[in-house]
């Protein structure tokens, strides 16, 4: 189904310098009971974001006014754990369009790309630099340039290239998804079935 096209995004970022953030942290299992895709953003990072009595935890970065933006910058091995796509929906629903990390769990990377959320993998050094900048200058601006596959710190000019599969890049740029592609190739699938599953 058509979704937002992604080309160039300029935005400040939200730093979450924690490694191994798993899907149970992103969206705890007890919030998975909805039967639609919307509304998961309210419970994004639920157990970190709110204290046990339901009040916002002022220590958690999403509750700090000085950090805003559509980019989440987080520690290595982000999104490990469950295949639940709700993690990607929750991040997207909250308003994030890009997650930057030095390492992503496989299924998460796929799920993110399937839902218009761009995973940008950078070197550990670049990542640490972003965390440093976020302390000095909470409103540091980043630019994510998908056509050139480049992430730049706008104020300082520091940048790094990132990898993305050519096909997924096309999909993100044009705002279409895998199912559109497959549905237009039904004849090939039927031909395969006939030759392999007699």
């Amino acid at each position: 189904m058509p979704r937002e096209k992604f080309t160039i995004l300029r935005s400040p970022f939200v730093p979450l310098p924690v490694d191994n953030v798993d899907t149970d942290q992103i969206i705890p299992a007890r919030f998975l009971k909805a039967t639609t895709r919307e509304g998961f953003g309210d419970n994004l990072f639920r157990d970190w974001r709110y204290t046990s009595d339901g009040t916002p935890n002022p220590e958690f970065v999403l509750n700090k006014d000085m950090y805003t933006g559509k980019i989440l910058v987080t520690g290595k091995n982000f999104g490990s754990g469950s295949s639940r796509e709700h993690a990607a929906w929750a991040l997207y629903d909250y308003g994030f369009r890009v997650v930057v990390s030095s390492f992503f769990a496989d299924i998460f990377r796929n799920n993110a790309l399937n839902n218009g959320l761009l995973p940008v993998q950078v070197s550990e050094g670049f990542l640490q630099r972003l965390f440093e900048l976020s302390v000095k200058n909470p409103d540091t601006l980043l630019e994510i340039h998908l056509p050139e596959q480049k992430i730049t710190v706008v104020t300082t000019g520091e940048y790094e290239g990132f990898e993305i599969n050519a096909y997924k890049k096309e999909c993100m740029l044009n705002g279409y998804d895998d199912i559109d592609y497959l549905l237009s190739n039904k004849d090939k699938i039927t031909a395969y079935e006939q030759s392999h599953h007699k």
């Binding site: 796509e85 799920n111 895998d178 079935e193």
Partner: peptide
């Protein structure tokens, strides 16, 4: 394991 978009994909196309 696959995510829900892929579940949708397999339901629609078996691929």
């Amino acid at each position: 394991g696959i995510g829900t978009s892929e579940v949708e994909m397999v339901l629609a196309t078996q691929c």
